[in-house]
Design a binder for these strands. Structure first.
Lengths: 119, 119
DNA sequence: GAAACATATGAACATATATTCAGATGAAAT
DNA sequence: ATTTCATCTGAATATATGTTCATATGTTTC
């Protein structure tokens, strides 16, 4: 990352020890990036609605379209994103494709954020 | 929201009862929106790094600049977003401004996502 | 086999967003 | 008071992103 961060502020302004200590406690950059991608996925109302709905029941694309109030195409695009992040899984049955959550942590994540919002 | 979602797919394709049941269990739209905003805030690597750092220790803007490896201006812009969402609070001491987390739920949220990433 | 339907995909477009740059503010030091 | 410094702010820009539209794929039904 940065090699010369000592000159970002004047030397005496930064608590250099503290910065180094915190830096070592931070997750590696790739992990932060991966976490940010998950959060970004949940940061879109359409995708969040999909996740919230699937947290209740398995649903087909058509049902999700009815729930999220956007076009089936938009839902499909967003489901691809969620699939790519291993947040949802699917099961084909004839023409229909049924989606469900593929992660046991996500519900805790959502519950915690919901608490924050409802404080 | 939608009043005529019965025609999104052909009538027999959607499990209408199921959709209605799930719809009633979903949080109200404003709450979903608020949750999405929190997730979106955590979805940017710069902001996530700020949050992760502040989860360890109180830090001034200058320290955060050194840690996140972007300009002080960029940090300041992002801190404003986090302030607006009540995710961080600050304390002035002379020229310096010290930031810290302002939410007890966020650490659980991050821990859960971290588990998902490290599975 | 053709038609109807659920879902997926690619291109296009319009909007949102993160950073940089230049300059403003306010506090400490000289 | 003037300079220095930490932080903030607004405008500008480049990029990312979500939706729509048109079309493709695969499955069922007739």
């Amino acid at each position: 990352m940065a090699k010369d961060k000592i000159d970002v502020c004047s030397v005496e302004a930064v608590d250099f020890e503290k910065v180094e200590r915190v830096r070592q406690e931070l997750p590696p950059g790739t992990e932060v990036q991966a976490m940010a991608e998950i959060f970004k996925a949940l940061g879109d109302p359409t995708r969040l609605n999909i996740i919230l709905a699937l947290a209740r029941e398995e649903l087909c694309v058509c049902d999700l379209t009815a729930l999220a109030d956007v076009s089936a195409s938009a839902i499909s695009h967003q489901l691809r994103v969620l699939r790519g992040l291993k947040l949802v899984k699917y099961r084909k049955q004839g023409k229909m494709v049924y989606y469900s959550l593929d992660d046991r942590h996500i519900e805790q994540v959502i519950a915690a954020v919901q608490e924050h919002v409802n404080e």
